[in-house]
């Protein structure tokens, strides 16, 4: 085991790459849960984003069209969850779970029907990397950030945007009020349901962007179930980051670093003992449980998170 394997530029660059899909899902979770809707369908939104991004890229040969399509389908899936959670007052866990199963079944089904057993086309339009020429020559820093994908930067920009939106704008204030105390929000004339719809739909778009990143920036293909639970790690990052965009970024980076390490330490050993790298991958989940249990800081969700809101008097 070497220092390079622990904090080399390669590991840090990989950390950013690996953190990005987690971050986008986590941002989706922040927006949705701050408005009071638990959206565990983020995993499914990612998956449809990944798949329909590939389909659109294949059909249109345009990255822009592909990303728009991916986010539109993610928004659509999230909208179904929104109807269930907000209008039908379904159990949000069951509904989200049903949509995850649906997303997995649907994408696998369509993948089989569209592309059979040969896999998705190899000449897909991919999301480009952003080369920062002046930095490329800088040692270390250049290796870490000079060749990152456009969506990595987009994710970082979204952290700032959403942080400002939530805590420095009027619509953000209203969204937080809806998630904390929807009755209070309603009594001052804020449209609770409408706010929640937009928040859930936005969360689906963010997660779908994360999915499209996986298929169009990283893998350049689609395989069944390729999101591999990143939507859930995103939720973990949201919780660990205490329902704030900046916190989610920090958590995503920690989780991404854990995964990057498990790659870089593959086959490494300390003395005679091989490093159990797979156990590093449990880091996000263990940390999240500890955080929620209050052993590592205290993580408290918005007060009305996950509770269907029932308007009075429409009995």
């Amino acid at each position: 085991m070497t220092i390079d394997q622990l904090i080399g530029a390669g590991v840090l660059a990989a950390t950013l790459r690996l953190a990005t899909p987690i971050l986008l899902a986590a941002l989706g979770g922040v927006v949705s849960e701050r408005a009071g809707v638990v959206n565990i369908a983020l995993e499914g939104c990612m998956l449809v984003g990944a798949f329909f991004g590939v389909v659109a890229a294949d059909q249109s040969h345009s990255v822009v069209v592909a990303l728009v399509a991916a986010m539109a389908v993610g928004a659509g899936l999230a909208a179904i969850h929104a109807v269930a959670a907000i209008h039908l007052r379904s159990d949000q866990i069951v509904s989200g779970m049903a949509l995850n199963i649906l997303a997995l079944g649907l994408t696998s089904y369509l993948d089989y029907q569209f592309y059979g057993t040969t896999g998705t086309p190899s000449d897909l339009a991919g999301v480009p990397d952003i080369e920062i020429a002046p930095l490329a020559a800088v040692p270390f820093v250049g290796d870490v950030i000079a060749h990152q994908n456009a969506i990595v930067w987009a994710g970082l920009a979204l952290v700032v945007l959403i942080q400002v939106f939530l805590f420095r704008t009027v619509p953000g204030l209203r969204l937080r009020a809806v998630g904390e105390h929807p009755r209070a929000a309603e009594t001052v004339g804020i449209a609770v349901r409408q706010t929640r719809y937009w928040a859930v739909i936005a969360s689906g778009m963010l997660a779908a962007l994360g999915g499209a990143y996986l298929s169009l920036s990283v893998a350049h293909s689609f395989t069944d179930g390729m999101t591999g639970g990143r939507g859930f790690i995103g939720l973990a990052a949201m919780i660990f980051g205490r329902w704030t965009p900046v916190g989610a970024l920090v958590a995503s980076l920690i989780f991404g670093y854990g995964t990057a390490l498990s790659f870089s330490l593959q086959g490494a050993s300390i003395g005679d003992v091989r490093v159990p790298v797979q156990l590093l991958s449990t880091l996000p989940y263990v940390l999240t449980i500890l955080a929620v249990a209050g052993f590592v800081g205290r993580s408290r969700p918005p007060a009305a998170d996950g509770i269907p809101y029932e308007t009075e008097g429409h009995a």
């Binding site: 204030l173 209070a184 009594t187 804020i190």
Partner: peptide, 18 residues
């Protein structure tokens, strides 16, 4: 009370009519 506990007094007062 129809107040949002984590928000400030002023934010609660103006909420919905900022």
């Amino acid at each position: 009370f129809m107040l949002v506990p984590p928000l400030t007094v002023a934010e609660n007062v103006v909420l919905g009519d900022e």
